[in-house]
Design a protein around this nucleic acid. Structure first.
Lengths: 240, 240
DNA sequence: CTCCTTCCGTACGCTACCGTACGCATTGGG
DNA sequence: CCCAATGCGTACGGTAGCGTACGGAAGGAG
């Protein structure tokens, strides 16, 4: 299972959803969009908070997490430049129960909700693509739900690293074990142990908040099937 | 957190989505719909299989589960007469990675995919309601993903019983511990232990595949917050 | 250069749940 | 009426990950 090719950006925004639009449609959206920076730990929207804009990442990673009453959180899926942050708006909701938090710093195109909803009405192509991305998100979250229950910490860590690798498009990216532990819903110390195993196996190297993917194939072998399933379904649904 | 009132059916099908439609819209759908029985263990649709019809349950429970390569499964959410089985079709997909399996026998109205898609195009009200149900499903699955990771077997069992209680509309319903163990992603013996605790606490009684909800309030106290969150969000989104 | 913060490695007792297995009670079919 | 199948209770050793804690190394700020 190879990671999706990352074609040279001959044109476009860098976000796969936007770049799937006819150039004329995209041009009409442009005036309403603003490019913003998403700095690590930024909360794009919080649970039960009115969502004012949707975001199309062009770089970096945003995590969708379920916050619990005791303050703990668990990631349900990640969004990179393949997707969109704010799908609940597409489904007619003003808020949701999940939090969207920037996990790896990057940039995104911000589109206010009213402009987005108008665009959805006007551009059938955009509607179709977002619809299929929504379905991909469904797959990812459903698979996560099972994965969280059945698979070991080490497998899930490998999966997380692979998904992030796909989305950041670089072999080295910043992520602390403390953050990772929150995403995976385990102790920080457990991440240290699992990451140590992957590191000693020669798949990754870890140092002071920077992880480097050394042997991607090896990492794929260490991951559970869930990575492959999510990735395959994403490519299948978004092969515009 | 009271369970939603179950108003006497003065009219309608018994399925909340269909009954939220203007009578004229529903009347036009009727010729295309067929009432079918869903017997326990029936697979309504399987992972990676073309979905040929959507189903609107009027009684019984359908579970959406994520099947893993080793044959194990985990429930990601349940669907009763508040919802619809086949949301991926609404999102433009022909298949998905989850399996829909009947968990408590009942009846459903079956609508072929092409008729459903036509209806979605023609009836904006149906589109709006299904859209919001889709959002509710999102909430449920996301919450499940976190719950599966963070909460104890006993809490999750209580949550499952409460959700099912809401959907079957009866204090007593059939469910074996073997099935429950698959839904919760644990051993059958673990279910026995947890169910035993709930039983000795006087919240439920269990005998040969029949569970009886004895003390609903007590069960709510034994459940994690996830039941309340899912239920609140469902009511909020579907309070037509 | 020093101090303080961040980040990571490790350790230890503990708990929940696992895999497996056995036995018993109830139920339905021949 | 008997037997097989189904469903549940229980037991026991094993283990993954927990809560907590301590220490050390790297880096940034003054």
């Amino acid at each position: 299972m190879a990671r999706p090719d990352r074609p040279a950006r001959v044109r476009g925004t860098g976000n796969h959803i936007l770049d799937a639009l006819p150039p004329a449609d995209l041009a009409r959206l442009r005036p309403d969009m603003e490019e913003v920076a998403l700095v690590v730990r930024d909360v794009v929207f919080d649970a039960r908070e009115i969502i004012t804009a949707v975001h199309f990442p062009v770089s970096g990673i945003v995590s969708l997490v379920t916050p619990m009453e005791d303050g703990s959180i668990v990631e349900v899926t990640t969004v990179g430049n393949e997707g969109m942050v704010g799908v609940p708006v597409f489904l007619g909701a003003q808020s949701t129960t999940v939090r969207a938090i920037s996990q790896v710093s990057g940039r995104a195109l911000r589109l206010p909700v009213d402009a987005f909803l108008r665009a959805i009405d006007d551009h059938s192509q955009l509607r179709a693509v977002v619809q299929r991305y929504t379905q991909a998100l469904f797959t990812q979250i459903s698979q996560s739900a099972g994965c969280n229950r059945l698979h070991s910490n080490e497998e899930r860590l490998a999966r997380w690293l692979l998904m992030s690798h796909d989305r950041v498009g670089a072999d080295r990216f910043p992520i602390t074990q403390e953050f990772l532990s929150q995403m995976l819903g385990v102790r920080r110390a457990t991440v240290t142990v699992s990451a140590g195993i992957l590191q000693r196996a020669g798949f990754i190297s870890y140092a002071r908040g920077q992880v480097t993917i050394v042997d991607r194939k090896g990492l794929e072998g260490a991951s559970c099937e869930c990575y492959r399933i999510m990735q395959t379904e994403l490519v299948r649904l978004l092969s515009y």
